[in-house]
Amino acid sequence: MLARVAMGDREAFAALYRATSAKLFGVCLRVLIERAEAEEAVQEIYIKIWRNADRYAAGGYSPMTWLITIARNHAIDRLRKRRAMIIRGEAGGGTDGDGGSVLDRMADDAPGAEAQMIAQGDARRITGCLGELEPDRSEAVQRAYLSGETYADLAAHFNVPLNTMRTWLRRSLLKLKECLSR
């Protein structure tokens, strides 16, 4: 179906929307929490999908992974811009935030990353492997993926130096990868 969308087939695009919009809107809501913003995000995401469907084959992702990844990345971009705007107390675009404690407070306002983690179906494998990590390391991975936290955010949250945070997380990623490959 993505192949037909890439060819500019609007009917295929409509069918793709019907089949996947509830899933991608769910992803936007989980990342952005605010409904109005998630609605804007999901519109932008489908516009991106229409324009970029011809790039799908290049990544080697399964179709659903490709779509969810686009949705997640777009929602995270919006979330980071929103944070950056709030930190600077101004409107206008922002770069990826690097706001230490402010970001940290904001993240704490959002539902916990653990609460957002939904164990069902396919999620079992990653859930199982995250469960093999120490709880704070698994939380760090989830904060990065679902809340778009940077190393600076994570270092502030866990109250460790940035380099330590990175070493820590990279080691956790290797463990995770090893578990996922089993």
Partner: peptide, 26 residues
């Protein structure tokens, strides 16, 4: 791609249909 496939379930959960106006706007 392997990493992407592995982490995607973290973002996947309950499906929520967007409002009807979303498609019209697109």
């Amino acid at each position: 791609a392997e990493w992407a496939e592995a982490v995607v379930p973290m973002a996947d959960g309950e499906d929520v249909p967007p409002p009807g106006t979303t498609w019209l706007n697109i």
